[in-house]
Each structure stands twice: as structure tokens, then as C-alpha cells.
Design a protein around this nucleic acid. Structure first.
Lengths: 193, 193
DNA sequence: CGTTGGCTTGAGAGGGCTCAAGGCCAGTGG
DNA sequence: CCACTGGCCTTGAGCCCTCTCAAGCCAACG
């Protein structure tokens, strides 16, 4: 199970991993199973650990005053789930994170992560991830303030086609910032064209 | 002029700067003046350098098919302007960046930045900035898909009150993803309450 | 075979947009 | 010193996109 993670770190860093470092990493990351709908983080808690997804699908979302869920991120195999801000700053998170599918993850706490700070390639990976995350958010924010719902859906179709296979439409709709009804109508119109 | 930057780096890193490093940094960052409305980056170009703002105000925005501008970031003193994604990946940017006010900036190219990679405290600063950027985008994206225009304005008032002093309403409106007319009406209603 | 979750469709409402006009103010040039 | 201009803000009317609420259908599942 840890092999996937090791491969992933290798792929996301220029610096190679030594035998020793590999063992360190394997010893620190704790495997966990998340059942469908099981919380990984609830709003109000500090995000004590990050989760590398070996198998499964996880969502991060906020809940507004009227009880509506707004999906901020969808994560599948070989992505990291967790609220980076809460994790890094040790502040309470405003987001919920839960498993949409039954998932296998490898978790690591902040303290343990800090203990691995001597592993260059792990640092590089974390750095790269933070950057990519930032780029992705920038793109989505731009889409949110610039495009119509239809264009945002078209973009999602291009960028993450696997999401459409993996998540039901009401989840996709929430991710796009629209209602499931609107998404349903958009899709029907798209077919007619 | 470089003093502001040095102070800034010190403030954003735990590692202290040596005399030597300070001199290196001063020698590499090139001061530039940007006139009002002068482009720092135009869509289609690769963002070859980042700019630390010593004085002034700079905006980053995309232009849609109908010619409407959508403001993604507003930057003032002691912020960094530039498209991090284009800068890091050397890909063409889809954003325009220009000076809203006459500005004094310190610029550095990617090659020069890579040349300073031995300066720990500069790396730490860059890391911190990327993270904060990511956090800020996450917050704004959440606002964009969860809140009404009115709430987004209220949040902006709280988070960056200085923006309201500094930029005209049509800029603020664009930043919030609404039209200037809508913003005007929101403000009037807010006063009545 | 009832229940639950997901998708669709309709009707009505509303938030925000578009287009258009008018007012205010500061800067500029005659 | 005044007229003119450009940038900015406001207000109105009509419209459109998206939301809300409600109902109905279907497939999966216990």
C-alpha cells in the first residue's frame, strides 16, 4: 500500500529518495480505511492530518446557513485530502471532509510531517503540491467570476473528465456552484447541439 | 528602496538573512517604475519576472470574449505581482497585469531567482507566499460558490478594507464577480439598514 | 416490494445583468 | 476663469439566467 505513495513522491520531486528515507516514510504514514460518508474532518476541528488517497474518492465542502453543501474540492486516487490551511496554521477549519466512496488512505500528522523535514524530496513534493493547488484554485476562481455555468461545465468536462464518471450530478453541480436542476438542463441543451 | 524588501523577507521567514545574502538580493532585484495603466504582463506572454511592490497598486485580470475585464487579484504595497503559474511553469499567461496607480516595484526574473536558491530565508518566504496565496484563493472560491453578492462584499469590507479606499467601485465589483450597477445598489441598501 | 438516491421537468420567483440616461467632480486647455 | 472632457457613481426598466419548490420516473438495494 505504501508503494503507491513512494512512487508518487518520486514522480513529484527531482531529488531521489534514499533507501533509508523510504523506510522512514513507510514507518510514519498510517493506513486507514474510510467508510462511505465517514468524516475525515468536521467543520470546527483543526485538521490534524493529511491523507494520501490510495483508493477511493473524498470531498471537501462547506455548509451554508441554510444547510446547503458547497463542494470546494473533489479528490480521488493519488491526491491529497485535508485542509492545508487548517493543517499548516493549526486553526479550526470551516470545511467538512468526508469519503464519498469507501477509501484507503495513508495519513500523517503535522508533527510527524515536521519530523520528516530532512527528506528533501518530500519537501519538494509538498512545495510542488501547494503550488499546483494554488494554480488550480486561481483557474477555478477565474472561471467562477468570468464564465457562465455552461462554460464552467464544459471546462470541467475537459479538465477532469473522470469526475463525471465518478460523482453523481448533484455533486458536480455543487462543485460548479450551481444547482442540480440547472446542471441537468445544461446537459440536455448540450446534447441537442 | 531595497530596504522595504529586505525587511519583508525577514518578516516572512524564520531563518535570518546574512550580510552577504542581503547584498546579493539587493544586487539582483531591479527597480522599475510603472506608469498608470502601464502593462507589466499581457495575456499570451510568459511571465518572465515577479514584481515586489514598494509603492503603488497593481491589478491582475482576464478579458472575456465580450471584452469584459474580470479582476482576479488586486495588489498594493508589500505584495507580489505576477502570474505565479506562468512564471513557474514558463507557460503563456492568460492574464493581464497592469498598474492601476503609478507604482515603484522591484523585479526579478526566474533565472535570477533560481540563482538565489541557496538563500534559505528567501526560499522560506516564497514557500509561505505560495501557501498564503493558495489559502486566499480557497477562501475566495468558497465565497464565490457559496455566498450572495451582498455577503461577498461584506467579507471584502472585513478582509481588505483598504481596497475600498484605494480602488473605484467598478474595479471592486469586477473583483467580486458582479457588475458596477449591482455593487452600487448593494451599497445603497446596506446604508439603509 | 417498499425505500432510498439520483435524474428530469415544469412553473414561478428573484437576483443579477444589460442598456440607457443623468449627475457629479477633477483635470485640462482655451 | 470657464467650458469641456473623461472617469466615476447612481438609478430605472426590462430581461434572462439560475434558483426554489414540487412532482414524477427510474434503478439499485435491502
Amino acid at each position: 500500500m505504501h508503494e503507491v505513495l513512494i512512487q508518487y513522491i518520486r514522480a513529484h520531486s527531482a531529488t531521489p529518495l534514499t533507501e533509508n528515507e523510504t523506510e522512514q516514510i513507510k514507518s510514519v504514514f498510517v493506513p486507514k480505511k474510510l467508510r462511505k460518508r465517514q468524516y475525515f474532518l468536521q467543520a470546527g476541528e483543526v485538521c490534524r492530518s493529511m491523507a494520501f488517497i490510495v483508493k477511493g474518492a473524498i470531498r471537501q465542502y462547506s455548509v451554508d446557513a441554510r444547510g446547503n453543501e458547497h463542494i470546494l474540492r473533489l479528490c480521488i486516487e493519488e491526491w491529497w485530502a485535508g485542509d492545508r490551511e487548517s493543517f499548516t496554521m493549526l486553526t479550526p477549519s470551516i470545511y467538512n471532509i468526508d469519503a464519498w466512496e469507501e477509501s484507503d488512505v495513508l495519513t500523517i500528522t503535522k508533527t510527524e510531517m515536521d519530523g520528516l523535514s530532512s527528506i528533501t524530496s518530500l519537501n519538494e513534493m509538498a512545495r510542488t503540491l501547494d503550488q499546483n493547488q494554488s494554480f488550480a484554485y486561481q483557474k477555478r476562481l477565474n472561471a467562477a467570476i468570468s464564465y457562465t455555468a455552461e462554460k464552467r461545465y464544459a471546462e470541467l468536462e475537459q479538465t477532469y473528465p473522470e469526475f463525471l464518471q465518478r460523482f453523481p450530478q448533484h455533486i458536480i453541480a455543487s462543485y460548479l456552484g450551481i444547482t442540480k436542476e440547472t446542471l441537468s438542463r445544461i446537459r440536455n441543451q448540450a446534447v441537442k447541439k
